[in-house]
Design a protein around this nucleic acid. Structure first.
Lengths: 230, 230
DNA sequence: GTCTATAAACAGATAGAC
DNA sequence: GTCTATCTGTTTATAGAC
């Protein structure tokens, strides 16, 4: 009744979950760098060390693979957002006090930037999401509902606690977008930023310099909003 | 010796320049919304009311059309940047005095936002450039050298005049990127912004609201930099 | 310059053996 | 579940008539 170890030979096909996950990973990388239409299913299968037929088996068709990538991104970013700005499930976990809220904004934005800019896998995620943003799609729906909307809503709540401005006011919502937009641009426009800055790479050190500037901006905006009721 | 009017009949083929320009326009629209790989040369020709063979004749191949679109974008944005932030040809046109520089930053950013967000053709331009930014390419080179670099350098000069911070310091260059990034995000992420804001469209009215917030941010950042030597 | 016809390569999807 | 072979449509590029 002894259970044999699962296929120790390297020539054996990998487990189903392994193949599926490898396909999603490979698709994220290729869709991110070359675009969905610019990537063939054969390329994805090759990078994942899988067979072309496995895409049809696991995802039905190429569009199903796109959805699977979107779901993977939503899950990944949920984890990141959770540890950056706390729970995404409504106002229960609101920070107590303006000072605490301001601190949470600072550290949260710092962690978000660290992920977006410095982590290599974030490059493909941002590029993939960016392309999906060009027009409404089922893939964008999943990422929006799963991460963007709850994370943005959460940030607005912290902003209210930090400044006194209503969380769901137009001004607050737009301001939060400007904060995120600053950070995202450095990933989207990384190629341009590198040239202008004379940077060879865009790693931890460069991300730190960007984070400093964004933090200064946030502090400046925060202090202009406190005590005045614009 | 009388010169005949140029082909008044609508069934006659259009002039060479007209066809060429129509192809570039059509390609910009389609490459922007669907991506370069996601667009067939047949689609471009159809939208331009031109023949498929005309692409090979005017641009050699599909890649040549991409370059032509990049050049068109560089020219268009040069015009916009020129009237938004003044001449792009070096420090000659530096504004006189900190107050004038600050005013120029405000109006310049406002005009830039008005173009990026509200003008319909800017959507395709931003999306096209965005995709090119994914990786270094000949098309990106032309846009970078033709517009991005000179415009960014010019903004840094105005920033120096406005705040006293050296134009080519890392901090100044990065700060200018954060200002542009804020504005660009509202075009890139327009779909997400519209959903979160509950906006049906993203026209003049909405652009005005965004411009207000970005202006407030700029004012806050400016006033935090003046009088302190960080 | 414009347009048609066609070549050669490549795409996604599918059927069926294992 | 994996893999191969193949079908069908589409792609870019080209040759040549007008």
């Amino acid at each position: 009744m002894a259970i044999l170890p699962p296929r120790p030979s390297s020539t054996e096909p990998p487990a189903a979950d392994t193949t599926r996950a490898a396909l999603v990973r490979a698709a994220l990388t290729l869709f991110g760098s070359q675009g969905f239409e610019g990537t063939s299913t054969r390329e994805v299968a090759a990078l994942a060390n899988a067979n072309i037929g496995s895409i049809a088996y696991h995802f039905g068709n190429k569009e199903g693979l796109r959805i699977a990538v979107a779901d993977f991104i939503a899950e990944t970013m949920q984890t990141i957002a959770l540890q950056a700005i706390g729970g995404l499930d409504g106002p229960a976990a609101k920070p107590a006090g303006a000072e605490a809220a301001r601190a949470q904004l600072l550290t949260g934005l710092e962690r978000l930037i660290a992920f977006i800019i410095a982590r290599p896998e974030a490059g493909d995620i941002v590029r993939f999401v960016l392309r999906e943003m060009s027009q409404p799609s089922a893939a964008l729906d999943r990422i929006y509902n799963g991460v963007f909307e709850p994370a943005h809503r959460r940030l607005c709540l912290i902003w209210e606690e930090a400044t006194g401005e209503p969380a769901e006011s137009e001004r607050t919502r737009l301001t939060v977008f400007t904060l995120l937009g600053q950070a995202l641009y450095f990933r989207i426009g990384a190629e341009v930023v590198k040239r202008r800055m004379g940077w060879e790479t865009f790693g931890e050190a460069e991300a730190g310099k960007v984070a400093d500037v964004v933090r200064d901006n946030l502090l400046a905006i925060l202090s202009s909003r406190i005590g005045s009721d614009a």
